[in-house]
Simulated scan of single mutants.
Amino acid sequence: MSGTAHIYDADIDPTKQEIVARYGAITDYEGSYRLVDFQGDEVGIEVHVGRDVEGRLSQMPVTYRPAEVDPLATLTTMEHSVLGTRWVSNALGDPVAVREFIRTIVTGDDGAEYSNGVTPVLDVRGSGEEKDAEVGEVKLTEFTRQRAVGTVVINGSRRSFKLRMSNLLSPARVNATGYTTSKLRLTGVTAAGTEVIAAEFAWLDQVMK
């Protein structure tokens, strides 16, 4: 289990629905799923899910921090009645969030439970089988709203990677001549039982000592 995300009974401004509508083109908000920052518990990692104007199931990964992580990743600030001012960032531009996505995928872990008993909108799980892998520092060399490229320390060695999180949540694709979904991925299951791909991960090199 990827831990428990603490959910506060708080007033926030802007609301999450306002943030995803403004920055993620999600017009019909359905909920979220989360991962936990195991190394510091300072960074909130949340992926919002809903429908866009065309009715397509979409996601928007963000982080919440008490200070700005990278101006290029910043979306907005949020006033939280319990935690104060929080910086809301594109999660693919936040090394802590990227580390936790990698850890969840590579080790085959699942998403976090919510402390308030609410069920995450997607039941997510990584496809990897290295359950005892130690995932450490991430350094990002490039990121967009749907992709992060950089290096990560895993089992004591630094390796380069690419993490992709499409804004659209679609089933896995298998095509002999075209795009095929990566074997290392984060899969989500909706309440209706539909399986979708939340993230894809690939190593870009051999092990570097």
Rank of each mutant, 00 (worst) to 15 (best):
S2F: 10
G3E: 03
T4R: 09
H6I: 13
Y8T: 03
I12N: 02
P14I: 09
Q17M: 12
A21D: 08
R22I: 01
R22F: 09
D28S: 15
Y33C: 05
V36D: 10
D37G: 01
V43N: 09
H48N: 15
D52H: 00
V53W: 05
G55I: 08
S58H: 06
V62M: 07
T63H: 10
Y64D: 03
P66E: 02
D70H: 11
D70L: 09
A73R: 04
L75V: 02
T77G: 14
T77E: 14
L83K: 14
R86P: 08
V88T: 03
V88C: 15
V88Y: 14
A91R: 02
L92I: 08
P95E: 01
F101R: 00
I102Q: 02
V106M: 04
G108E: 00
G108A: 06
E113T: 06
V118W: 13
P120I: 05
D123I: 06
V124D: 03
S127R: 12
E134S: 13
E134L: 15
V135F: 12
E137C: 04
F143Y: 12
T144H: 12
R145P: 12
V153E: 09
G156R: 06
G156I: 12
R158C: 08
R159E: 14
S160K: 11
K162W: 05
N167R: 14
L168K: 10
P171W: 03
V174Y: 15
N175I: 09
N175C: 13
A176G: 14
Y179H: 10
T180F: 04
T180E: 12
L186P: 05
G188R: 09
G188N: 03
G188H: 00
T190P: 07
A191S: 09
E200F: 07
A202N: 01
L204H: 03
M208K: 04
